[in-house]
Simulated scan of single mutants.
Amino acid sequence: MNWNKMLHQGKLTLLSAVLVAVSAWGMHASPSQAASAATAVPACGTGDHGLLKELQARHAASEETPLSFSDLQFLSADTGRAAGSGFMIGTSDGGCHFQEIYQGQWNFRQIDFPNNVQGWALASVKDTAATYLIATTNGGSTWTRIGNTATDFERIDFKDSKRGFGYSQNATSYTIDGGRTWSLIRTPANTRSAEFTSRDKGYALVIAPGAGYRVMKTSNGGSTWSLSLQSAFAYPESGRIYASGDQVYALLYGGTGMSQTSYSLYASSNKGGSWKRVIAQDSAGGGPAPGSGAAQLRSGPASGKPGNMQLIGSSAAFLVGFSPAGEKVAVGRSYKGGKAWTNLPAIPGYEGMISFTGLKEGWMAVRGQNTSSLYSTGDGGSTWKLKFVFKGTEQ
């Protein structure tokens, strides 16, 4: 049975429980009594919801780490998925109920659903290192490997059911047939990260040893590239470009040590025409923040390592940060294209990953000492509500 059918049955069961509770008051129950009876039925909760019991039992019987989420993606505040080693779960009612979508051989590293039915993923078979591009046409219940060989893609981004991009550290590819064939897009030498908002428009982070870093941009599909941002010193070790509409962010990673990472975050609200240095976080273990120029803040969210970013609309951006030593996870955000940045309160955890669907609505997967949990927010990351948790043997 697929997860949509299971969700429908779950809703019917809940509705039946409400009706039974209301009828218990008699045919002449008052509106307040009926409302009280309906409220008494638990609509939402946390925990594993009975999912994946066999997998959890196997983990509990061994010294393995508990089940954990490796990626999540939400299409709306209500509908989304989260996946990990050999499993995928989903919800269509904002996390009140979760359903098992998939259980099998695939260890998901990244999932990408442009709609609620068609999706792609980068995944490996259990106990192997090779990564494959796989696809689904039924919401994730079954998966088919695309091609017979492993892929070197580190990240995928499908814009619709046919068109998508595949990224490795120094190469970008494009498909128009759902991933069956790919064409290479020319990027500058020493590219470490690229991001295309369309087939023609894209950005590349270039890091040349001893020569600093540059952000380049193209408006003709990589035929030519022009300079957008440059620094001749304090070059980073790696980085990541994020782009959506007019917004572009460059996340530059410095050194890492003692569970700390130094980094800088640059923002442009005009397609790379001008930039502001938002965050420049030094660390004892990672050294000085890479890059140059005055920064708005000397510390990022949770004063820790940067995680993934999410850009929404023309001016909103969210960045998750986490401090394993401090055991805290938090989100930083801007609603003004990086011109003003706020680091929000932290919650307990070692690592985090976010998926925002609007200015206020978002989800976060958090790994704790012996748990892996899903949280939701309705106020842009200021507060978080626990929606789902996998617990280990010590819980």
Rank of each mutant, 00 (worst) to 15 (best):
E64L: 07
G392N: 04
A340W: 07
G47N: 13
A289H: 04
A29T: 12
A365W: 15
A21N: 09
T79V: 02
D112S: 12
L265Y: 11
A280T: 01
T149P: 05
K276F: 04
T91K: 12
D177E: 07
S141Y: 13
N270Y: 09
G94S: 10
R298C: 02
N107H: 14
D157P: 09
L227W: 03
P348E: 12
M309S: 06
G285T: 03
P236E: 02
A43T: 15
S36F: 04
L374I: 01
Q395K: 10
P66L: 05
K360P: 12
L122A: 10
T142H: 15
W341N: 09
Y266I: 01
S223Y: 09
G337T: 05
W275Y: 03
G313C: 10
S259L: 06
L319C: 02
Q260R: 00
N343K: 14
A61R: 08
G304I: 01
T191M: 00
Y235C: 07
K336D: 04
D112L: 05
V125F: 14
W106M: 01
L252S: 03
P290W: 02
T65G: 09
G245Y: 08
K201W: 00
I354V: 08
T357A: 00
V22Y: 00
Y242P: 10
L133T: 13
V22P: 01
I101A: 07
Q105Y: 09
S85P: 14
S223D: 12
M27K: 11
A295S: 11
L15D: 10
T136G: 15
I89F: 11
L67V: 09
I89G: 13
T256V: 10
C44P: 15
L229V: 02
F113L: 09
W363A: 03
G349W: 15
E327W: 08
G164I: 05
K391M: 09
N115M: 04
G94Y: 14
T46G: 13
I185F: 13
K162A: 07
A123I: 09
L12K: 11
L227Y: 02
A189I: 09
S161E: 02
G286I: 00
G26Y: 11
T197Q: 03
H28M: 00
P31S: 07
I279S: 02
T393H: 14
T172A: 10
N343Y: 15
P348M: 11
L252Y: 03
I312M: 01
A37G: 06
S68Q: 07
L75H: 04
P345R: 14
N107S: 04
G166H: 04
L229F: 08
A123H: 13
A330I: 06
G368Y: 13
